[in-house]
């Protein structure tokens, strides 16, 4: 009986993870595209663009971060993948979404504070340890994007 309940719970979580996880992922992806289009003019560069830094009227450190977790179904598939090796597409897409989200939040913060571009952008990720000693419990990955936002005179701004 106990085994049946456990199996039932497993199937429910797997289905829930698969269905809800997919819906949430596709919703997030289309939302990311809309926001990325809107933020395109707030250039975010990984280098300290010399001309912009020289012309800047003001600067400030800006950042964006997000903690993402993978759904139950993808975690299960990743476990199987661990047996045979190879790419784990489920993790790739979650991390990709996390990075895009973090960069967007950084750009949105820059825009909101009246800046035009972000230079010297760094993107870091850190795995957060699971909350229970047996390796179960919740776990997630934090993605942090940060850089120096610059306010540029009208003539120096990149065209949208």
């Amino acid at each position: 009986m106990g085994v049946l309940i456990q199996l039932g719970l497993f199937v429910v979580m797997l289905t829930l993870g698969f269905v809800v996880g997919r819906v949430r992922e596709s919703r997030h992806l289309s939302e990311l595209e809309v926001r990325e289009t809107r933020m395109r003019h707030v250039a975010a560069l990984p280098v300290p663009h010399a001309a912009w830094v020289r012309d800047a009227q003001a600067s400030e450190l800006v950042s964006g971060s997000v903690v993402v977790s993978i759904d139950y179904y993808k975690r299960f598939v990743a476990g199987l993948r661990g047996l045979v090796g190879g790419r784990i597409a489920g993790f790739e897409s979650v991390l990709d979404r996390g990075r895009r989200e973090a960069v967007l939040r950084m750009q949105e913060q820059a825009l909101q504070r009246g800046f035009h571009v972000v230079v010297n952008v760094r993107v870091d990720s850190a795995r957060l340890a699971s909350t229970m000693s047996n390796g179960k419990g919740t776990s997630g990955v934090e993605v942090l994007a940060y850089g120096t936002a610059l306010r540029l005179p009208a003539h120096a701004r990149p065209s949208a």
Binding site: E25, Y72, E142
Partner: peptide, 26 residues
């Protein structure tokens, strides 16, 4: 926050509580 995050761990996506916590700490 952990209970809410535990539920999110089933369906995936952002763990908002953790995002806020880490931002405050940073």
């Amino acid at each position: 926050r952990d209970i809410a995050a535990g539920l999110k761990n089933i369906v995936g996506g952002e763990l908002t509580g953790y995002t806020e916590l880490l931002n405050e700490s940073r």
